[in-house]
Computed example of a mutant assay.
Amino acid sequence: MDNQQVWFVTGASKGLGLTLTQQLLAAGHKVAATSRTVNALTGAVGISASENFLPLEVTLTDEESVKLAILKALEAFGKLDVVVNNAGYGHFGTLEELTDKESRQNFDINVFGSLNVIRQVMPYLRAQRSGKIFNISSIGGYTANFAGWGIYCATKFAVAGFTEALAAEAKSFGISATVVYPGYFRTSFLTKESMIGPAYSIAAYEDARASQQAHANDINGNQAGDPEKGVAVLIEVAAQTEVPVHLFLGQDAYDLAAMKIDVIQQDLESWKTLATATDFDT
């Protein structure tokens, strides 16, 4: 197990990313952390740049900005041990409500932002033949049975998909890839500052409106997950020699995953005879 690691964390100015950065620094790890503005990042973390902390202003949708940030991290710390693609935001709205522009913007950050980081960091991890990549998805990246969360869940399903592929591609270089599926944690994720709604709402979607109101008024501030405990698990997992490809985080994430598995198992068995009669006759 590593005693001190060099971490690269995106979306570090709030939520799980902020808590992770603070815990890492308190434990003596080195952290290159990114946010859209350095002032927001240093203000949230509570310190400016130091021997162990490199705050970086990055536009994740700009690959040159990402490339420069990784170069600065390597110049400062000499290597990278753990990369956490945490940046992302929730965009609520039914598939009919959200415009093409709104949907693509959510994918740009939640999916392509992480791919930009992976594309730029892999050459260095391959050269050192080591490294761990954690891509933060959501339990909504495993089960999407929530009215009004289709596009957001689709972005998180994409994160799960490319992480599985990355795990296979990177394994021979001594690099691991893990998709993290957090449940509900008591962060700023569901606040008005972090959760975006549709520009155009359709009143007929009563279930979606009820879900939107429930998340804003009832769930927000009452999430069962403790962010401090959640990131402590992530840090402990990252210290292990062998790490999982799939990491479900929180009891609610485990419960929802089990429900999805049961539904799939039931569908498989119910339709097995018909759905498997597809091979050429021999």
Rank of each mutant, 00 (worst) to 15 (best):
G221S: 10
T241C: 00
H215E: 03
A204M: 14
I202L: 15
I235E: 02
D252I: 03
Q240K: 13
A239M: 05
E242N: 06
I196L: 15
Q251L: 07
F248T: 05
A203I: 10
T187R: 10
T187Q: 12
V180Q: 06
F185H: 08
H215Y: 13
S201L: 07
E228R: 08
K192N: 09
A208G: 09
L190D: 10
N217K: 02
N217R: 13
A210R: 07
A204D: 15
G197E: 12
S211P: 02
D207N: 14
H215S: 07
K229P: 00
Q240I: 01
S194Y: 05
F185W: 09
Y205R: 08
L247K: 02
D218H: 12
D207I: 09
G250P: 02
D207Y: 06
L249D: 03
A239K: 15
T187C: 09
A238G: 00
A199M: 05
A204I: 10
R186C: 12
P198K: 14
Y181Q: 10
V180F: 09
D207L: 15
T178P: 06
N220E: 14
V245W: 01
A203Q: 04
V237I: 14
A238Q: 00
T241N: 09
E228M: 08
G230Q: 03
P182I: 14
K229H: 06
P182N: 06
V243L: 01
A208I: 06
A214Q: 11
Q212V: 00
E206N: 14
G221E: 12
A216C: 02
T241Q: 14
Q240E: 13
F248E: 02
A232T: 13
G230E: 02
V231K: 02
Y181N: 05
Q251R: 09
P244F: 03
F189P: 00
I219Q: 07
D252R: 05
G250S: 07
A214R: 09
N222L: 12
Y184L: 10
A232F: 01
S201G: 01
K229V: 08
T187V: 10
E193C: 05
P227N: 12
R186V: 04
D252N: 09
G230K: 01
A239N: 08
P227Q: 10
F189G: 00
M195Q: 15
T191M: 04
N222Y: 15
A216P: 01
L247Y: 01
Q223A: 15
K229C: 04
A214H: 09
V231P: 00
Q213L: 09
T187Y: 10
V179L: 05
E228W: 01
F185L: 12
A210W: 00
S211H: 05
F248Q: 01
V231R: 04
D207C: 04
V245A: 08
S201V: 12
N222S: 15
M195Y: 12
D207Q: 11
N220A: 11
N222I: 06
I235H: 00
E242Q: 11
S188F: 05
I196G: 01
F189W: 15
V245E: 07
M195S: 13
D218F: 08
